[in-house]
């Protein structure tokens, strides 16, 4: 039997420093970053799942949140299947406001059909006494209609589960709207393959209108069972926004690490381009023209992203020379 390939384009959006890259890194098996390194443009990571009759590829677009040197590129919002809107549980006001002002508008414009999730990160830093305040802030912003999930990239709490939920929901949608015979039972097959149940996933979602602070705190208290992470090892230092890469020296950030990250993202994006072309090769003739347009859009926007990356490297070089 022919194996179907299912590509899911998921983008992770949110204010700078909310932990988008950390979340993706821990999900794909990389270490939690030891320091804050801003993401330049986008970085595409992928995770693959091989089921009996289907091959699922989750393409995760991690988008840099520093607006001063990361202009919004339409490719971050177009042709999306799912989006994670990340906010910081320790700085909910600003990060939720950014979601409303910037990301929700663009998502409803470019990908109104995509499945969105509101994700609060850094649950490991949330103090019990702050839970009530947090709930009130979230309620005040009235971001409704999306599942809300709290995670900790640092302790990896709910990270795998969140991505499992994303894929499960997408597959459910596929079962309902797509070729029913071909994809029937695929969501259950997927859950079985990752050893999760639908109840596990439902348990992730927080009903913000009904939950109280005690229950919330119990629900999100980190289990600290993964990777022997010691939470008391380092004191929490608030992050500072970097507005100009040329001034990076003032921020105690390893510039070479930024360059390494840019190049690593460059490589990942190159692989993504290769896969876009591969996908186009497999496109049936009746949808070829549409797919060429779609691929061309993605390629043009990725080109802008490459330009941004190269410019950023040159900016960093300039900062070397200036100093």
């Amino acid at each position: 039997m022919l194996v179907s390939e299912i590509n899911i384009k998921l983008t992770i959006l949110g204010q700078w420093g909310v932990g988008k890259t950390s979340m993706v890194n821990t999900f794909v098996g990389k270490d939690f970053p030891s320091m804050y390194i801003p993401t330049i443009g986008s970085n595409i990571a992928r995770k693959e799942y091989r089921l009996k009759d289907n091959h699922i590829r989750l393409n995760i677009w991690d988008i840099g949140g520093q607006r001063s040197f990361n202009p919004l590129n339409p490719v971050f919002f177009s042709n999306l299947d799912s989006a994670l809107l990340l906010f910081d549980l320790n700085n909910p006001k600003e990060s939720l406001q950014e979601i409303i002002d910037t990301y929700l508008k663009n998502l409803s414009k470019h990908s109104p059909e995509c499945i969105m999730y509101l994700v609060g990160n850094k649950s490991d830093l949330l103090k019990p006494e702050d839970s009530e305040i947090l709930l009130n802030i979230i309620r005040k912003y009235q971001i409704q209609g999306f599942p809300i999930v709290f995670v900790s990239a640092k302790t990896q709490d709910n990270i795998t589960e969140l991505f499992t939920l994303v894929i499960f929901d997408f597959l459910k949608k596929l079962e309902e709207s797509g070729n029913k015979t071909q994809f029937q039972g695929i969501s259950k097959d997927f859950l079985n393959s990752v050893g999760k149940s639908e109840e596990d996933l439902n348990d992730l979602i927080i009903n913000i209108d009904e939950i109280d602070s005690n229950t919330l705190h119990k629900k999100i208290t980190p289990k600290i069972i993964k990777k022997n992470i010691k939470l008391t090892e380092k004191e929490y230092i608030p992050l500072k926004e970097i507005k100009d890469l040329k001034q990076i020296r003032a921020f105690d950030i390893d510039k070479n690490k930024i360059k390494e990250n840019i190049f690593s993202a460059f490589k990942n994006n190159l692989v993504a381009i290769s896969e876009l072309i591969l996908e186009l090769k497999k496109t049936p003739i009746n949808s070829l023209i549409d797919n060429i347009d779609k691929t061309l859009d993605d390629l043009s926007n990725l080109n802008k992203d490459f330009e941004l990356k190269l410019d950023s490297i040159l900016e960093l070089e300039k900062s070397d020379k200036n100093n």
């Binding site: 190049f263 460059f266 061309l296 390629l299 080109n303 490459f306 330009e307 190269l310 490297i313």
Partner: peptide, 16 residues
């Protein structure tokens, strides 16, 4: 890396 990126970008523009 910077040089590789530059070469790729000119190549990529051709591809587009």
């Amino acid at each position: 890396n910077e040089i590789l990126m530059k070469i790729w970008m000119s190549e990529f523009k051709e591809i587009i």
